[in-house]
Design a protein around this nucleic acid. Structure first.
Length: 146
DNA sequence: GCCAACGTTGGC
DNA sequence: GCCAACGTTGGC
């Protein structure tokens, strides 16, 4: 059973568009223990919402975990981890922070509760609700995401 | 640009 | 081990 996650990136540094051009993304550079532990909990096939922080402030697409955690190549100290993600589908309508905050179904989402956590778990119903708000009406299996 | 929330560092 | 000082994230 796939789990669901959300990962933040600043689009000025590394954007969804860039990810899709590169086909795969090494999700490195995470320097927070809680976020790292979430990276380490990701399993191949898990689905990850990609969120643009600062600019956009919206969920823009869905990626899949293609490699479970390994040594972060940008970290000489050896304590940080990275995963490999593959972008799968762009949301027809990006879902903004504002929309998420206004949705009663999403009132407890980590994105709102803990604004600074860059890699975070997302509950099943939150994931489905967000992609629904994003214009995807079919569940992930129908969309061929699993 | 401001600042709240959170994490980390380092003196004691 | 506590906590003040500092640094960073990221929404507004």
């Amino acid at each position: 059973m796939a789990q669901y996650w959300l990962a933040k990136t600043e689009p000025d540094t590394y954007s969804w568009t860039q990810m899709t051009h590169e086909k795969t993304a090494i999700w490195d550079g995470v320097r927070n223990y809680a976020a790292r532990n979430n990276l380490r909990s990701m399993k191949t096939g898990d689905l990850v919402l990609i969120y643009h922080s600062n600019k956009g402030k919206n969920v823009v697409g869905i990626a899949k975990v293609t490699k479970e955690y390994f040594q972060d190549p940008t970290d000489p100290s050896g304590i940080w981890s990275a995963v490999e993600l593959r972008p799968l589908i762009e949301l027809p309508t990006p879902v903004t922070m504002e929309t998420i905050k206004q949705d009663p179904n999403l009132s407890d989402i980590v994105l709102v509760k803990n604004t600074r956590l860059s890699v975070q778990p997302v509950r099943d119903f939150e994931f489905f609700r967000i992609i629904e708000l994003g214009g995807l009406t079919d569940p992930p299996d129908k969309l061929g995401l699993l």
